[in-house]
């Protein structure tokens, strides 16, 4: 289950919005203009079940998201959804991995403290005995040029 963001967790001045995550689930998100730079040399890795519920995170995921491991496990991956990300990007992601294919994209992720970080995300279906059983997402440092392109492009996709 996903909880609304709490003002006491936020660092700095923030805006508030209601984010339609999926189905009928909405979340109050609080977000700031503070960027956390992606750490050099690290990969953020997580695994979700077929419904997008987090089952595994690595240390870098915990550090960059600002959540504890306990808060992340069993939470929907959309706990990282930033209001600046166009829903079309995530529809494309799910359409692609549901076909058993790899998806890549530049994503702005939301931190627990309301800040954000950009990643180059790759999501692949984990196929065991011919069936998709889960999804693994690997995030790496994106090039600044790609990020700048997305800063211009994403507002046009709403």
């Amino acid at each position: 289950m996903i909880q609304d963001m709490k003002p006491e967790d936020i660092v700095g001045e923030y805006k508030e919005t209601l984010l339609d995550l999926y189905g009928s689930i909405c979340r109050v998100v609080l977000y700031t203009e503070i960027e956390t730079p992606y750490p050099d040399g690290k990969l953020i890795v997580s695994t979700t079940d077929k419904n997008g519920v987090i089952t595994h995170v690595n240390k870098s995921f915990i550090e960059m998201s600002g959540y504890t491991e306990e808060e992340l496990i069993n939470a929907p991956h959309s706990i990282l959804r930033h209001p600046d990300m166009p829903p079309a990007a995530f529809k494309d992601l799910w359409d692609t991995v549901n076909k058993g294919e790899k998806w890549q994209g530049i994503v702005k992720n939301l931190r627990k403290d309301g800040g954000y970080y950009w990643v180059k995300a790759t999501v692949i279906p984990n196929i065991r005995n011919g069936e998709v059983v889960s999804y693994t997402s690997v995030r790496r440092k994106p090039s600044r040029t790609r990020v700048e392109e997305c800063i211009k492009l994403y507002p046009t996709l709403f």
Partner: peptide, 13 residues
């Protein structure tokens, strides 16, 4: 091992 293979595949492009 399967996880590492998936990871390598994800990183290959």
């Amino acid at each position: 091992m399967e996880f590492m293979i998936d990871l390598m595949e994800a990183l290959a492009t």
